[in-house]
Design a protein around this nucleic acid. Structure first.
Ligand SMILES: NC(=O)c1ccc[n+]([C@@H]2O[C@H](COP(=O)([O-])OP(=O)(O)OC[C@H]3O[C@@H](n4cnc5c(N)ncnc54)[C@H](O)[C@@H]3O)[C@@H](O)[C@H]2O)c1
Ligand SMILES: NC(=O)c1ccc[n+]([C@@H]2O[C@H](COP(=O)([O-])OP(=O)(O)OC[C@H]3O[C@@H](n4cnc5c(N)ncnc54)[C@H](O)[C@@H]3O)[C@@H](O)[C@H]2O)c1
Lengths: 218, 218
DNA sequence: TTCCATTAAAGAAAAATTTCTCTAATGATT
DNA sequence: AATCATTAGAGAAATTTTTCTTTAATGGAA
């Protein structure tokens, strides 16, 4: 694949995927008042190898104490910081349908550094509504608002066939990253970050295991 | 990690994750009336390497034609079959809140072989409601219904702190696979299949790229 | 105090996944 | 008819990710 010439060997993607779960676990421990947590404990919770945990955490600045583990409070702080959950990024959501409105409702997103400032749709019956204090505007107002607010991310939750149209619009108005929930793959300029989140991939994995287990009667 | 003694080297998980997108693309081509599709075309759509596509498809029974590619209709059939989307599996959903009701609304799931037969909640204001013809029952009715219908999958969309309680309940009533949308990791017997779908992982990946790009001004 | 078991961390090894290379086939072009 | 360019597919190589091994540290038990 043709990539931008130099690719600064960053943090492995699987590592980044696991980190929000480490964080969620650590936050739980913090609430319960636990002061230290070992890689063994985290690994047990996650159902992975303990060395995987230490290796993952070695990408951050945290240092553990032999025979004790990591300080829970420090772990929460370091992971939040590392994952970029302490910086608030503004986002627009386009397609305030069933999935879109669920995302608007989700306060977890703002907890993790994503601030959805407005939603857009074309369906007149949803325009003007508010979900969790986020108002739904007509898509034509996209232009004006994106310039006013400092919006870096666009969330696409329209039907798959409209994904490209919406993506083009987002690119045109200077959005830097797109979180695409449709099964469609969108074409955007190279410098735009795209994250596809296809729930059906997860379904496929469950089915694969489920149906294989059925055959595997031995 | 301690795994069940023999692990029949199956299809790579990354491959399975890509397949639903191949399928969605092929279905689109089929609707447009295109008869053949090459790995190059698929790869271009997916933004991956063409040999990745041929390698992935080599796990299925389809055979391509040199200089022509794969027959679109056959590709759709083979992938649907391979991914288990032609077998209908029954599922229960627990937690008919914002995410839960979005999933109930989503007809994509039934298109991909998942038939949500009933939903459960504890909130009296949602009990009795219907989403997309799927009724919401009180969680206490879980027992009776799971025995009547042949339900193999449980979908968890309750707040994270209640995930384990719900999982225990699902296990107790003979469910084989759990699709967990909460950030919490649940503990279940070894033979139960668990698929965690944490949207915040995707968010972490976007932020990582977005914030790195900001620094990487060179 | 002495010993022991548990732990983080670093590096090596193994395993999994992706990318590259080559070959043979074949439709299209000259 | 001959040539060319594109393709699937197989196997090798490279890369990435996970797991294993070793070392050193240290809190708690004897
Ligand atoms: N609902 C789910 O749980 C779920 C699950 C997985 C994937 N998805 C995917 O998410 C996407 C949305 O699904 P949904 O269930 O929310 O659909 P939906 O029909 O409930 O919502 C789509 C919304 O987009 C709006 N819209 C359509 N075209 C638009 C445009 N050009 N500009 C702005 N708004 C537009 C519609 O008016 C509607 O409100 C689909 O691609 C679907 O495959 C949904
Ligand atoms: N909404 C989203 O877009 C979103 C995104 C990512 C992750 N999530 C996760 O999904 C989960 C649900 O989120 P949500 O936004 O739908 O929350 P929600 O509060 O809208 O819905 C939760 C529902 O579960 C019900 N419930 C609570 N305890 C229950 C129990 N013991 N048995 C049965 N039902 C019970 C509640 O009555 C409520 O209806 C959370 O863990 C959240 O982190 C949600």
């Amino acid at each position: 694949m043709v990539q931008s010439s130099k690719k600064i060997q960053g943090v492995p993607e699987p590592t980044i995927r696991r980190m929000p779960s480490y964080l969620a676990f650590a936050e739980g421990l913090l609430r319960k008042g636990q002061q230290f947590v070992s890689s063994t404990q985290i690994a047990n919770y996650m159902n992975i190898d303990p060395t995987q945990v230490t290796k993952d955490l070695s990408y951050t600045t945290i240092v553990g104490k032999t025979r004790v583990g990591y300080e829970v409070k420090a772990l929460v702080d370091v992971l939040s910081e590392f994952l970029g959950f302490t910086i608030m990024d503004n986002a627009f959501l386009v397609g305030a349908g069933s999935l879109g409105s669920a995302l608007l409702h989700d306060s977890g997103l703002s907890h993790f550094g994503l601030n959805i400032v407005a939603a857009f749709d074309v369906n007149s019956s949803t325009i003007g509504k508010k979900f969790n204090d986020i108002e739904v505007f007509h898509i034509d107002q996209f232009r004006d608002l994106s310039q006013e607010m400092n919006v870096v991310m666009g969330i696409i939750t329209v039907p798959a066939e409209n994904a490209q149209t919406v993506a083009d619009l987002m690119v045109a108005w200077g959005i830097k990253a797109i979180w695409n929930f449709t099964p469609a793959r969108i074409k955007v300029p190279e410098d735009i970050i795209v994250q596809n989140t296809t729930l059906y991939s997860n379904l496929a994995i469950i089915f694969n295991k489920l149906h294989n287990d059925r055959k595997e009667v031995l």
